[in-house]
Design a protein around this nucleic acid. Structure first.
Length: 139
DNA sequence: GCCAACGTTGGC
DNA sequence: GCCAACGTTGGC
């Protein structure tokens, strides 16, 4: 079991959009090699924090990988990957980036260190700490 | 809207 | 193969 954090601009694809999907939502559009390689490392059943970038700037919910990396159908050329996720549960209280930056145990997260990375691994400890800050128990 | 950080591209 | 220039992302 691995843990991840995925980012999306809520104007493009929000957690609410993912939660509204009948089955699972397709995570496409990654055009960054580091992020793509992380996508390919995901296994079915892995859990991910869903973060709203640009607008919101907060972790809003938890989702689960239900289909492992496959060729991104939105990529006209190049070697890119997509992963399917389903929403598990929203956080009772979204955890803003400012709180993550203020939490000493979360300073090593790529979210804090490498702002532009859109898919990143997080440790079990980091994952659970964010859930605790969002007052949601481990699903 | 601006600017910093990072990745990618292209000239040499 | 190096490095400068450019483009994109994302926080502020």
């Amino acid at each position: 079991m691995n843990y991840w954090l995925i980012k999306s601009e809520p104007d493009e694809y929000s957690y609410q959009d993912l939660a509204a999907e009948a089955d699972a939502g397709r995570w496409t559009g990654v055009r960054n090699y580091a992020a793509r390689n992380h996508l390919r490392g995901m296994k079915k059943g892995d859990l991910a924090l869903f973060y709203h970038s640009r607008k919101g700037l907060e972790v809003v919910g938890i989702c689960e990988a239900v289909k492992e990396a496959y060729p991104d159908p939105t990529a006209e050329k190049g070697d890119w990957s997509a992963v399917d996720f389903k929403a598990i549960k929203p956080l009772k209280k979204p955890v803003p980036l400012s709180d993550i930056k203020a939490e000493p145990s979360l300073q090593e997260m790529p979210l804090v260190r490498i702002g532009r990375l859109s898919v990143m691994p997080v440790t079990k400890e980091e994952f659970e700490k964010v859930l605790e800050m969002g007052e949601t128990k481990h699903p």
